[in-house]
Design a protein around this nucleic acid. Structure first.
Length: 298
DNA sequence: CCCCAGGTGAATA
DNA sequence: TATTCACATGGG
């Protein structure tokens, strides 16, 4: 069994690392392969002999796969970005094979509305439940998959049924977003032409989306590589590693990070985020454990 | 029992 | 503008 297509940048990727990195919530293992649904396309991938091969259902969605896995970004650019900072270097060493995705905007929007004040596992469960119950079923040679439900589908789900997917108080936010998109079908499409600042203002019209979630959507669904979402982990990183004031405003953090990391700040952010979650110990500064991993590997 | 989570919106001063 | 609080749900 040999998957038909070769992913151009596959030698750089570790699919398991990407699946665990907190940017996508419906990437799943299937035997020795990985699967992900993007829009109504099912993608099956396998790493073998240092390269990634894949198949899509329906066939021929090459362009979509290459967009999803950011084949437009070069290894050289990333290496240069990582080298600007020792903390990022260490994080990249620990998270070798991490890469950013550019995912379908609507699923990304709802996923990150759900992400507020929630753990990775809980977000996964909610997204999976929504897709399984209300998304289009996709029958493929590898089994059944579910597209993420379109706005029209989510807009007519009763509040109690949304809550049954464990989204809690976010049910109203999801319903609001879905209804807004039914009324303004090009709400997400039209953001490609906007500046980042305009796009943030646009997205935060949706109830349940503030600065942080807007930034997640711009980074993970629109490929705005300079955007940094400031969650609890990035704030912890800023105070512990870079000695920024604890109560810095969101705008201050944005400015600092852009200035420190430049046009690929979003990528540096992702490595820092992933590493911080792993090395964090309660009551300890991240500085104390950031480089400690090495000593545990004799 | 506690605390916390890839936050946000509303109320308050 | 800045600070405080509630909000469902689940895991440590």
């Amino acid at each position: 069994m040999h998957l038909p297509h070769l992913l151009p940048n596959g030698h750089l990727l570790d699919l398991a690392v990407i699946a665990a990195s907190g940017q996508a919530f419906r990437m799943r293992p299937l035997g020795d392969m990985w699967t992900i649904v993007d829009g109504e396309t099912v993608i099956v991938l396998q790493k073998q002999n240092g390269e990634v091969r894949y198949a899509t259902w329906p066939e021929g969605e090459t362009e979509r796969v290459e967009r999803l896995f950011r084949c437009d970004v070069s290894e050289k650019e990333i290496e240069k970005e990582l080298a600007v900072d020792p903390y990022v270097m260490e994080a990249a060493r620990a998270w070798k094979g991490l890469w950013l995705l550019q995912q379908e905007p609507w699923e990304t929007t709802v996923s990150f509305i759900i992400s507020a004040n929630k753990h990775f596992l809980g977000i996964q469960q909610c997204c999976d439940a929504l897709a399984r119950r209300y998304g289009k079923r996709l029958e493929t040679p590898w089994g059944e998959f579910y597209a993420f439900p379109r706005p029209e589908a989510l807009a007519r789900v009763a509040d109690a049924d949304l809550r049954d997917c464990k989204v809690g108080y976010r049910s109203a936010f999801i319903a609001d977003a879905a209804r807004l998109l039914v009324v303004e079908p090009d709400f997400l499409e039209c953001m490609y032409d906007m500046s980042t600042q305009e796009a943030v203002a646009h997205l935060t019209r949706i109830h349940g989306i503030g600065d942080k979630i807007a930034d997640c959507i711009l980074l993970f669904a629109y490929g705005r590589d300079d955007v940094v979402p400031y969650d609890v982990w990035l704030r912890r990183i800023c105070t512990d590693l870079y000695d920024l004031p604890k109560n810095s405003s969101y705008e201050k953090l944005r400015a600092w990070h852009r200035q420190h990391f430049g046009s690929l700040a979003g990528w540096a952010q992702q490595w820092l985020f992933c590493h911080a979650r792993v090395v964090h110990r309660r009551g300890q500064s991240l500085k104390a454990t950031w480089f400690a991993e090495e000593s545990t590997h004799p």
